[in-house]
Design a protein around this nucleic acid. Sequence first.
DNA 1: GAAGCAGAATTACACATGTAATCGACAGGG
DNA 2: CCCTGTCGATTACATGTGTAATTCTGCTTC
Lengths: 121, 121
Amino acid sequence: MERIAEGEYAVMEVLWDEAPLTAADVAARVPEDRGWSLATVKTMLSRLLAKGVLSHEEDGRRYLYRPTIRREDYVAEESGRLIDRMFGGRVPALVAQLAARDKLTAADIAEIETLLKALKS
Amino acid sequence: MERIAEGEYAVMEVLWDEAPLTAADVAARVPEDRGWSLATVKTMLSRLLAKGVLSHEEDGRRYLYRPTIRREDYVAEESGRLIDRMFGGRVPALVAQLAARDKLTAADIAEIETLLKALKS
DNA sequence: GAAGCAGAATTACACATGTAATCGACAGGG
DNA sequence: CCCTGTCGATTACATGTGTAATTCTGCTTC
């Protein structure tokens, strides 16, 4: 699967959330703080099309864009990449890292424990 | 903290493992499968110096390079970034993801549970 | 002392990415 | 029917990254 750049990812998020959408709709939904012009969003859309992670269908003289890949799949791939690179593929090492950095609240811990317990059954 | 590119990260790994080292030493220790020439490694070293994540001291007419940032710190930052971007900052969501993808072996689960139990004491 | 070698510094060049502006076609309002 | 606004397509341009080659400079060896 093609790599999706950071900025492009913001566009994908919009379309994973709601699709299909026109370029203008996507632009309207991209987080404000990006400060992107419509032109910029259109560039992103073209590049994502070129990467094959979006498809478009015609709607009059506009296009409606929609993702061709599932968010979970992409997220899984990216997480896997990071875990491989930074933790030698060892998930427990990642969790230990987070723990050492106080990134885990008591609620997080409880939630994860419940989750793991369910896995074992 | 400056962002470190994928390739540059490979150089950092070498120096986190053992420092200080000369450019030639780093080149010798970079994973074979990168297939990098010494020149490429030197470019990486300059860029990392420019980013401030390496420092060098003179040793005769060579340099000895060493990291100025700790591996744990960088890894923590990168993991945080990914968790924020892809899981809305929610660690349990990441774990659920991994679980759903069968990325957790029984041993992993046991290890994580032990880890979490220790945290609560 | 000249020539070559070993290091760093400088330069190169293609592709990715962020961030648009411009161009050409067409549809709808006056 | 023509003008203008709206689309997608094409082009632009700076910076980052992968991957070096070339140059400069000083030590070593004849």
